[in-house]
């Protein structure tokens, strides 16, 4: 009986902590969360509909056949990306997007570029194993 009470108690404590943490995060999201332009919103949906993340990563998460695209917008510029998407290469299909969709996708890539820097080289390891961003 006492054993049961202890178990239920530990379980309930953890559950409450988890729910508290979860709802705290929902309420206090990490970045300034203004509304985005309809174009960026559309671009994000296109990114998902074409499953770009099957081959590409954002902040290092996604598929591994192609490069990380978090900061491709500032690294390559919109003309390069546009050309790349239209032509494709042997490992990446060509995407035949309308002008409007192309603009939206580019706006989204610009938007994620502005959210931060995903280059692992900018992190400095700390003695206790943590990292800080340069």
């Amino acid at each position: 009986m006492r054993f049961d009470t202890t178990i239920t108690g530990v379980f309930a404590t953890l559950l409450i902590a988890f729910l508290g943490y979860s709802f705290y995060l929902y309420a206090d999201l990490p970045q300034q969360n203004g509304p985005v332009s309809p174009q960026v919103a559309q671009g994000k949906l296109l990114w998902q509909q074409h499953n770009c993340s099957a081959c590409h990563q954002v902040y290092g998460l996604g598929g591994y056949l192609g490069p990380d695209l978090t900061n491709v917008y500032s690294r390559r510029g919109s003309d390069f990306i546009r050309g790349f998407l239209q032509a494709g290469v042997n490992t990446m299909p060509a995407f035949h997007l309308s002008e409007q969709d192309m603009e939206a996708l580019l706006a989204y890539l610009k938007n994620i570029d502005q959210s931060g820097n995903a280059d692992p080289r900018q992190f400095i390891p700390q003695t206790y194993g943590h990292i800080v961003q340069r």
Partner: peptide, 16 residues
């Protein structure tokens, strides 16, 4: 939209 408007917020909850 509240959760997806910003890519960092979206990915935080996604990976949570």
């Amino acid at each position: 939209p509240y959760f997806r408007n910003n890519v960092v917020n979206d990915m935080t909850i996604q990976w949570k």
